Amino acid sequence: MTPPDGRAGIDAGLVRRLVAAQFPRWRDLPVTPVAVDGWDNRTYRLGEDKSVRLPTAAGYVPAVAKENRWLPRLALSLPVDVPRVLGEGVPGEGYPYPWSVRGWLPGKVADHAHIDDLPRFAVDVAEFLLALQRCDATGGPVAGLHSWYRGASPAHYDEETRRCLTALDGRVDTAAAATVWDAALAAEWRGDPVWFHGDVAAGNLLVRDGKLSAVIDFGTSGVGDPACDLVLTWTMLTGDSRAEFRRAVAQDEGTWVRARGWALWKSLLTLANCIDTDPDLAALNRRLIDEVVTDHARSA
Rank of each mutant, 00 (worst) to 15 (best):
G198P: 01
A20S: 15
P72W: 08
A20Y: 07
K108R: 11
L46I: 10
A184W: 02
S267F: 04
T233D: 09
S213W: 05
A202M: 08
Y97S: 00
Y149E: 10
D192T: 15
D49F: 04
G170Q: 08
H146F: 10
P33W: 10
R25I: 07
P79C: 09
R258E: 05
L29K: 11
V207Y: 01
V80Y: 01
A57C: 07
P4M: 00
R53C: 11
V125Y: 02
G191I: 13
F196N: 02
G203V: 09
V52K: 00
E48S: 12
M1S: 14
R27I: 06
V257N: 07
A35T: 15
W265D: 05
R42E: 15
H146V: 07
L264H: 05
D124H: 06
P4K: 00
A214R: 04
A250F: 07
T270E: 14
R42A: 14
R45F: 11
A248M: 08
E244V: 03
D158G: 09
R163P: 02
A143Q: 06
D217Y: 04
C135Q: 14
D81S: 13
G222W: 00
G210K: 08
S51P: 02
V15L: 14
G203L: 08
V61T: 10
L212Y: 02
G170F: 06
L281D: 12
R162I: 14
L18E: 03
D290M: 07
A177F: 04
V36I: 15
A272M: 06
D173L: 10
R298F: 08
C135N: 07
E160T: 12
D252L: 06
M236K: 04
S147W: 04
F128H: 03
D124I: 05
Y95K: 03
